[in-house]
């Protein structure tokens, strides 16, 4: 199995959970989404940039090695592109779980009005 073959399995799992969460999120959509969208883009950019930097450092100092015959050969610096799948999966799976799990504030107040906890 290649590195992409392995990642496809886990990315698919994250995408399925993500699709369900997106459906739930859109149904209880709040008013302003521009702030959310801008924040999302910046957060994704930061995490992928950090992945590129630290993955290169980690491979550079020899924390991890790869079987050259099982990776695609596409690199960001010396980091295999496949490694970014971990960050992409984290960005999809974890916030999706946050959306899907029952929220603390829902039973206490209306879910559509942001609570002070949300805006802080």
């Amino acid at each position: 199995m290649t590195y992409w073959g392995l990642n496809a399995f886990f990315l698919a799992a994250a995408v399925i959970v993500g699709a369900v969460a997106l459906g739930v999120h859109l149904r209880r959509r709040r008013e302003s989404n521009r702030l959310r969208n801008v924040s999302w883009i910046i957060a994704v950019a930061i995490l992928l940039t950090m992945t590129a930097v630290f993955d290169n450092v980690m491979i550079g100092i020899g924390l991890v090695g790869y079987d050259a015959s099982k990776i695609s050969g596409v690199f960001v610096g010396i980091a295999p592109l496949e490694d970014f799948s971990y960050s992409v999966a984290a960005l999809i799976l974890l916030p999706s779980l946050w959306v899907l799990l029952p929220s603390r504030s829902r039973d206490r107040s209306n879910a559509t009005t942001p609570t002070p906890e949300d805006s802080r």
């Binding site: 290649t2 590195y3 392995l6 090695g65 971990y86 779980l97």
Partner: peptide, 29 residues
């Protein structure tokens, strides 16, 4: 929510790691 999400995320990525190691894709330097 956090006490569920962090362990679930951790288990998800550890499974990913272990499968990758078993397939001989990556290994400890």
């Amino acid at each position: 929510r956090a006490v569920v999400i962090l362990p679930v995320g951790l288990a998800f990525f550890l499974a990913w790691d272990l499968l990758g190691i078993r397939q001989g894709i990556f290994f400890r330097g």
